[in-house]
């Protein structure tokens, strides 16, 4: 019987070889990107199986949060609803994507232990699974954003293509942080707790609920806050605004350095991850 399928596994053969095997893992995962999508879809379906609203619970709870927070904080800060509700809606939803990918990233490999220990599936597949799962969540929440933007008239001034580019930057950067968290969490079980604390802290330090203009745009809290740049790259164009001048440079550099770091860690730990679990 003839076959075209081939699997070769060898011991360590130097840094370059390990690097190539890491790249191979990445390219295999992209060839079978549909699998990551199926797994993500399955996750969403099974999370809401048996509930009446199904995944629209995501939409409903987010809608309530936006309405409540929007009205309360607009009053507290003395800002008009027209300015504040779209701001806070986009803020909560897109920060949710960032923190979702990073927080759930911690469980990427831990949850896949069964599959990783008896198949040759690429590791990256499970990273994309977390990313896709959060994008599916986003799609449900996007209904709210769309409603808010139309209701308050922002659809006339928004720049959707630029916002999509911003979202791309946001996802690329969250993904490497998530993957780094995934590797670290597999090895050290304290890491998920640390990550959750950091993300909780970040939501208050980042202009999700408060407007950056009140702090002055050049404040160090903003300039050196990666989450601010990730968020602003999507939010500003949706609200008919321009992101900060440094934002794109910051995000591009961060993606480059971040992925280089993550990939290096991955090539060094790739063989070991399955034993960590």
């Amino acid at each position: 019987m003839d076959t075209a399928t081939h699997m070769l596994r060898t011991g360590r053969r130097g840094a370059l070889f390990e690097f190539n095997m890491g790249l191979r893992d990445l390219s295999m995962s992209l060839q079978r990107i549909g699998l990551a999508w199926s797994l993500a879809w399955h996750d969403i379906v099974s999370r809401y199986r048996g509930s009446i609203l199904g995944p629209f619970w995501i939409t409903l709870s987010m809608g309530l949060m936006v309405a409540g927070m929007g009205v309360l904080y607009a009053r507290l800060f003395g800002i008009s609803l027209h300015d504040f509700i779209p701001f806070v809606a986009t803020g909560i939803v897109f920060f949710g994507v960032i923190s979702g990918i990073i927080n759930e990233g911690c469980d990427t490999f831990v949850h896949a232990a069964g599959m990783l220990s008896q198949t040759a599936l690429p590791m990256f597949t499970f990273v994309w699974r977390v990313v896709f799962r959060n994008l599916i969540n986003l799609a449900h929440n996007f209904v709210i954003i769309l409603g808010v933007l139309i209701y308050f008239g922002y659809w006339r001034t928004m720049n959707l293509p630029v916002a999509v580019i911003g979202l791309l930057f946001l996802v690329i950067n969250s993904a490497w942080i998530g993957m780094l968290a995934a590797i670290a969490s597999a090895r050290f079980r304290d890491v998920p707790q640390i990550v959750i604390s950091v993300m909780q802290f970040a939501i208050f330090m980042t202009p999700v609920f408060w407007q950056p203009a009140r702090l002055g745009r050049a404040h160090a809290f903003l300039v050196y806050n990666p989450f601010y740049h990730m968020l602003d790259a999507v939010r500003a164009p949706l609200l008919g605004d321009q992101p900060d001048a440094h934002t794109y440079g910051f995000l591009a550099l961060m993606a480059l350095v971040g992925w280089a770091l993550t990939f290096t860690v991955f090539t060094r730990t790739r063989r070991r991850i399955v034993h960590y679990l």
Binding site: M7, L8, R9, T10, S117, Q118, R271
Partner: peptide, 21 residues
């Protein structure tokens, strides 16, 4: 068996499988 399935990487030596596993 796990090594043959491709899940465990060898520390030394080589595994070469032709065929769908």
């Amino acid at each position: 068996l796990r090594a043959l399935s491709g899940a465990y990487e060898p520390d030394d030596g080589m595994i070469d499988v032709h065929g769908r596993i």
